[in-house]
């Protein structure tokens, strides 16, 4: 299925390379968002506990 004739390797490696590069941003964005969400939640519960 993944056979593009003479340049199969080039095509596949460039798609894979771009995919992995873009996934760096996606993963870092996702992890950041998750961490901030958790921090915000913790902070709110802390504030409640203080009162």
């Amino acid at each position: 299925m993944l056979d593009f004739g003479k340049y199969t390797f080039e095509v596949l490696i460039s798609y894979a390379g771009t995919f992995s590069l873009v996934s760096i941003v996606i993963v870092s964005t996702y992890l950041d968002a998750k961490k901030v969400k958790r921090d915000l939640k913790n902070l709110n519960t802390d504030n409640l506990n203080d009162k």
């Binding site: 593009f4 003479k6 340049y7 095509v11 460039s14």
Partner: peptide
Amino acid sequence: GSSVKIIFIH
């Protein structure tokens, strides 16, 4: 050849 397919991300 098929290397033209790289254009879609390049």
